[in-house]
């Protein structure tokens, strides 16, 4: 894994976002070294699809989400969104394009201006873009607040800190929807929330997606959450793409050794499932000096000579299932401890 390649890109009319060879690098002080946050990844998203981006901290998933928004502009690569090449778009055209995609963040409370009333926060984009008459704006804001389950009356009188974390995330969602975007990038939107609230927000996102015809990019580290909400999932490791597949396929039969490791590391809420041996030791190496070849090879149970020199390319191993690995797992035969698949009691 940790490979490049574009075999998984689709060529249909309904592609809303197409990212090719995206590279994002940041300098390390003045040492001349650089953090290779994202090193040449490609993916596309269909209109109405939810793409999940998973991986551990430092894999570049959040950076990718922000790079799509051009915050900041990527070091190189192409981001084609609704027919516009965003990496070369300037000024007003860029601002217009940004209204078509919105982002929601992990910490909902700090992403809302603490000194303003919630209703004004949600309305602000409409005011900036002069969309509609004031009464129309307020009607729209109130309707959206109702939709996300926030009382508009209370929103008109209260500031963000008077709401709970889950409610603030709902408010962020309402704000992101107010300009009728087509794409929403969700950066760890539920990882700061309690499980009971997390379920509410995930369900809400599903409902809003259907109602507003949204396309979602869902960045998260929690595999179960990503599986639940996504149609297609892309697994990242150290700035590279490992595996891309439909959500159900990916977790049923992971082909990349890293995906298998991730899956096996999740604690399952069922004591009947024997806790296997730790799936992997150690931690990812520094993105400043990433390994050659496949970036996962120093930790991979199946790595050989070739993996340390030659970078694997994404290739299709089953219908719509792409993996960047020289020795993919076939037929669910994993080299690490496999857990029995008893379903949990609930």
């Amino acid at each position: 894994m940790a490979g490049t390649g574009k075999a998984h890109l689709r060529d249909t009319d309904d592609i809303i976002l197409r990212v090719e060879d995206l590279v994002m690098e940041f300098p390390v002080g003045r040492t001349g070294l650089k953090v290779n946050a994202v090193s040449g990844i490609s993916f596309d998203v269909r209109r109405g699809e939810t793409l999940g981006l998973v991986g551990e901290s430092g894999c570049g998933k959040s950076t990718t989400g922000k790079a799509i928004m051009q915050l900041p502009r990527p070091t190189s690569g192409s981001v084609l969104f609704e027919g516009n090449e965003l990496t070369t778009l300037e000024g007003q055209a860029m601002r217009e394009a940004r209204t078509r995609m919105q982002m929601i963040f992990q910490d909902p409370i700090s992403s809302l201006n603490p000194r303003r009333k919630v209703r004004d926060i949600v309305r602000e984009p409409l005011v900036i873009w002069k969309r509609g008459l004031p009464t129309e704006q307020l009607d729209k804001v109130d309707a959206l607040l109702e939709e996300v389950g926030i009382d508009p009356q209370r929103a008109a009188e209260s500031q963000p800190h008077q709401f709970s974390g889950g409610q603030c995330q709902r408010i962020s969602i309402a704000r992101s929807l107010v300009l009728d975007p087509s794409l929403i990038i969700c950066d760890e939107p539920v990882s700061a929330l309690d499980v009971s609230v997390q379920a509410q927000v995930l369900n809400l996102l599903e409902d809003l997606k259907a109602k507003h015809g949204l396309t979602l990019i869902f960045v998260a580290h929690d595999l179960a959450v990503v599986k639940n909400i996504s149609d297609r999932v892309a697994v990242m490791y150290l700035g590279k793409m490992c595996e891309v597949a439909p959500s159900d396929v990916l977790f049923e039969a992971p082909a990349h050794h890293y995906t298998a490791v991730l899956k096996d590391s999740i604690p399952v809420p069922d004591p009947e499932i024997a806790v296997g041996k730790v799936a992997i030791e150690g931690e990812p190496p520094s993105p400043v000096l990433p390994p050659n070849g496949c970036r996962f090879h120093p930790r991979c149970p199946a790595a050989d000579e070739r993996c340390s020199t030659e970078e694997p390319q994404l290739r299709e191993i089953a219908d719509n299932h792409f993996v960047a690995c020289h020795h993919p797992i076939v037929g669910g035969e994993a080299p690490v401890a496999v857990r029995s698949a008893t379903s949990p009691v609930s």
Partner: peptide, 17 residues
């Protein structure tokens, strides 16, 4: 327990809240 998304369930399973 029911509000936790589970890997065994197919994607888009409605979560109990």
């Amino acid at each position: 327990m029911q509000s936790i998304p589970k890997l065994e369930e197919p994607s888009h399973t409605r979560l109990a809240t």
